[in-house]
Design a binder for these strands. Structure first.
Lengths: 238, 238
DNA sequence: GTCTATATCCGGATAGAC
DNA sequence: GTCTATCCGGATATAGAC
């Protein structure tokens, strides 16, 4: 059996990226070790350095892929769109992204909390123009009386914070609600609850498709467990 | 001039705790180094180990003080209280706490994102009973028709996430809004915006004292800058 | 209580045989 | 492409003079 040329490389790079995401998400940049990543990927540390010369380059590669991923869901919208549709769809997508990609959400969170040393430029040059556009659009909705006179920037922050919370603080939420992981129906319920509260906060009615979902939903669609549990608190230093 | 016995110790411990908070908040537990903390506190590393035998014990001491601090503002409330008053006061206090103590907010965030290895027990044994009480109280408000039928747990998560966001993601928010740090009037505006949106999300009217504040406020009361900028992204490894 | 010097180990990164 | 052996700096922590 022959393999495509470059197949081994591609496989290894994938394994490394997956392992790196886990370790960086659970230890932060400085806390993560190349040894740990190599072990998790199942390859010797020297091989890891063969594929990624430095720890920094691996981290940057992960951040860069993360940006593409989240940018693809940036949910563009214009003043002529329907506010209730746009906002509920936006909340929906952000919660779903956090569910499908909890690790990149956590990596991003840690990076920003630590002062965004690797992402400052991106935030200033990419996120900020996008943000200002959205603020302007929401402001137009307000000016036309299509939503309540909330502060557009703080509405955006409210959507960001509330949706990301379920991915980043999964440990706390799952402990408080006495669960081991999120189920598909939990996710739909989160979407519904946030849409209900935030849209009402803007004086909007909830789109029809969400009015029924607020009570129950089948849960046979589990995809990616949101919890990670790398080695569950194995701080060697205890 | 004589000093009280134990005065030196107390002073040093204070300096160490302050430095530790900064470093742990900006690098996470594993990423922080005792050398860095000692330097920031202005004492030799060996002295640091004289006061705190291990890195772990220093970290635990900080977490423990953090818990007392935030518990003191846990904002108890009962079914007979006025929902609008309770919720607006709660949001107010949480935003203010994040403004006054951004570092402990960040430390907590990093700890939870990393799976809460040092806090799991506390969340299960202290936070959870508190959480269940609050859920029950809010549920009673709903049953008596005093607020809209939102999911109580998700309302709590919404308040937690939206208020903490301004402390934890300060770097991003300040970059997007083109500011160097929060001003007192920003904080009042944040409180007002969140109260307006979240209370409306529960079908509540805004308490009188917040109806005027939503436009302006003097800003001569600056206290603690929310931004930390330890050494601003000095990742040696670049 | 303070601080220099050091023990011990683990970190990132590389050399070079296979 | 793979992997053992190794370099070296920096990590936690301690010994012991002052």
């Amino acid at each position: 059996m022959k393999y495509k040329p470059g197949q081994i490389r591609e496989d290894n790079v994938q394994k490394i990226l997956a392992a790196g995401e886990k370790v960086f998400a659970s230890q932060g940049f400085k806390g993560a070790s190349m040894q740990q990543i190599a072990d998790l990927a199942g390859i010797p540390k020297a091989n890891l350095h063969y594929y990624f010369k430095t720890k920094d380059s691996l981290y940057l590669e992960l951040l860069s892929r993360m940006q593409s991923l989240w940018n693809s869901a940036l949910d563009d919208f214009t003043p002529s769109d329907d506010p209730a549709e746009v906002l509920s769809r936006w909340i929906e997508v952000k919660v779903e992204m956090g569910y499908q990609h909890p690790l990149s959400s956590k990596m991003f969170a840690m990076e920003v909390i630590q002062g965004a040393p690797h992402l400052r430029r991106h935030i200033r040059e990419v996120t900020r123009p996008w943000f200002e556009q959205r603020v302007a659009t929401i402001q137009q909705w307000i000016d036309h009386g299509r939503i309540a006179a909330v502060d557009p920037a703080h509405l955006i922050f409210l959507i960001w914070s509330s949706t990301q919370h379920y991915a980043d603080y999964a440990t706390q939420i799952l402990t408080l609600t006495d669960q081991r992981r999120y189920r598909r129906k939990d996710i739909e319920h989160i979407k519904g609850s946030l849409i209900r509260m935030i849209l009402a906060g803007c004086g909007l009615n909830i789109p029809e498709r969400w009015q029924t979902v607020l009570s129950s939903q089948p849960d046979f669609l589990e995809v990616s467990p949101m919890q990670i549990e790398l080695q569950g608190g194995n701080q060697r230093l205890a």
